[in-house]
Amino acid sequence: MKSPDFAYVRADTLDAAFRLKAQHGADARWLAGGQSLLAALAFRLSEPTALIDISRIDVLQGIAVNGSMVRIGAGTTHTTIGESDIIRRHVPLLADAVPHIAHTAIRNRGTIGGSLAFADPAAELPACCVALEATFVAASAKGERRISARDFFHGVYATALENDELLTAIEIPAAVAGDHHALIEITRRSGDYAMAGIAVALRRSDDKIDRVRLVFFALGDKPVVAHVAAGVLLGTDLVEDQIERAAKAVSADLDPPGDLNGGPEMKRHLAQVVLKRALLQILNNLMRMPA
C-alpha cells in the first residue's frame, strides 16, 4: 500500500500556495494534516500530480475572538481546538466534538479545515459547523469569499470550494447566554466513524426555544439539517413530551443510505435515539443549572 508517485511542494505563505497551485494544475491537491488524504493515497484511490503542503502557513493557524465571533484558522489541529480555553468557553460544542474524532495521534495532525474540506458525511465537525451557523472563509489567487456552512457541503466529499480555493478560516458566533448544545454519536468502538450522530445548538429565552439547529451526521451524504423536527421544538420549552414529538417528526427530514453497519431503517431508528439523547442531555443540564 504505497502511494502513487507525486510531487511534494511546501507553501509557507498563502500567495506561495496559490502560485504553486497554478503551477501544478487542477490535479494538484492541498495537503493539510493529511490524515484522510494520505490514507486514500495509500490505497491508490487517486493519483494527484502534486501535494501542496499548507500545514506551515502561519495565517492558517490560531484561534482568536473578534468581537462576537470566534475565528479558527483552518490549519488548526483538532488537538489545539480541544485544548483551547477560548473554544471551551465560546464554542463548547466544538470542544465536546474533538474527543470523538479518531484518536490522539490523528488529532495531533488532523486540522479543522482539512476535515471540513474533506466533507466526510460521517465527520463531526461539518455537522457542528452547520449547527453553529459558522461561516467559512475561502481564498484563492482571485481573493477571498465567505460561504455559510449551510451552503458549503454539497454531498459525499463534495463542497462549494473551487479547485483552486482553500479554506483559510472558520468563523463561529460565540455562544451567548441561553445557548445550549449537545453532541451525541453512536459508534461501535471509540474513535470509529459514527453509525449516527447529531450536533444540536439551540437558544432559549423566557423558557422558550427561540432557535434550534438539529444537524445529523452519518445519516446522509452531508450534514443533514432536520427542519421538520426543529419546527416541532421552536417556540416551545424543552420538555420530555416535546422531545418525543421532535424525535417522531425526524423521519421526514431524513433519507439515510445504508452501509456495512446496517440499512436505512436502522439509521432512521438511530437518528431518533441520538436526537432524544442530545435533547435530554440539554434538558438535564438545564435542570442542574442554578435557577
Binding site: 500500500m1 504505497k2 511534494y8 495537503l31 493529511g34 490524515q35 494520505l38 490514507a39 495509500a42 490505497f43 501535494l51 503542503d53 488537538t79 479518531a102 484518536h103 490522539t104 495521534a105 490523528i106 495531533n108 495532525r109
Partner: peptide, 23 residues
Amino acid sequence: EHGVCGACTVRLDGAIVRGCLVL
C-alpha cells in the same frame, strides 16, 4: 498503512503521530 492500527506511532515535534500518515 492507513492510520488505524497505531503500530507506526512515533513522536514528531513532541507529539505522537501515525508515521504512515506523515510524508
